[in-house]
Write a protein that binds this DNA or RNA. Sequence first.
DNA 1: ACCTGAACACCGTTCAAGT
DNA 2: ACCTGAACACCGTTCAAGT
Lengths: 207, 207
Amino acid sequence: MQARARERARQILEVTARLLDKVGLDDLTTILIAKELGISVGSLYHYFPNKHAILYALAEDWLASMTAALEEVSESALEECTLDEFVEVLLDKLAKVYQEQEGVLPLVQAMWGIPELSEIDERHDQLVITYLCKMFERLGFACPPNEKSRIARLMLETMHTVLVTITQQQGHRARRTREDLHRMLLAVMDARRADAAPDGLDDIEAP
Amino acid sequence: MQARARERARQILEVTARLLDKVGLDDLTTILIAKELGISVGSLYHYFPNKHAILYALAEDWLASMTAALEEVSESALEECTLDEFVEVLLDKLAKVYQEQEGVLPLVQAMWGIPELSEIDERHDQLVITYLCKMFERLGFACPPNEKSRIARLMLETMHTVLVTITQQQGHRARRTREDLHRMLLAVMDARRADAAPDGLDDIEAP
DNA sequence: ACCTGAACACCGTTCAAGT
DNA sequence: ACCTGAACACCGTTCAAGT
């Protein structure tokens, strides 16, 4: 049955996520995954064409939940929103996604290390950047499109790094780091609302 | 001769750095390194005990040049320095290190992915944090030690992420992203000089 | 249809034998 | 002292044979 097959695929992803968290990317072998599930290696390849495909599927899930969080943010009334409130909502939604993902660290590591995965990572980044740019517009940003996307990427990468850091901190420390992240993002965004930058086209410069 | 041996070791590191930049971490094999140098695999193991040791040595070089840059920063007259000037000098020195390192990206990836390397990475982070904390003091920061080191780590990680981004950007884009990084760091530091935070001990809370 | 596990290719590492 | 390359262990992947 198709239903059984999908159930097995789900089990494989679940076990892989757990093992990833437990043993790390380097020691995650197909044999280990199969053994943990009580099936043979060959059987594993019945559901996924190769090891990377399993990690690929995990990464897709993770990126999808990130997109969902952004979708939620963009549903709030940004037009009548201070930058401060915007950052608050944004960090709230994204922090939850990072907090809930099992083994974020090795997964992120896999996304950087394996070419197939960095490909979807890059595609996903583009998606997030597009989302953020649209929101910037609704927030009344006064800067050219390529500047908006540059800032979006900068914010994306900063949020990523610091949110990963936060998942490794506790209590007060975590809370303060989050406040600092808030400050950093605000500093970048504030600069772009103040300057109605008159330099829209000088990006054409370099190939 | 010892001199010959050291020369060979240097050659191996040089070739590995170039190959790392060219083919990436995944496709970097010991056979490839040996072939590129015109020696046999066995000979390679005469100079380094294993593949990780080669990457380890590369990482050490890179981290050493980072430390050297920080040493230079701490030689300037921080006591009579605005935060703005401090950030300017700091980013100037560090940006050069990132710009000059061949294959920063795969090297960083290796440092995250390989346990031995993440160990020196962590040791190095601690060193940088210590440096930064000392400088914070000279800059007149008013917050408890554990807060200083938390902020140092935050800054370290933010600088790392954004400086890597900058090495992949060009001209105006790179310059603007650097200005934004400047703003972000300033925002975090400013907050700590203003508040003479009265909450020094509440980190004891969680295990 | 789903599963098995021996077999193959490939890579890191070793070591007996060479100069 | 330094080098060689066949040999070994291990892991990802395949496939002929089973239920």
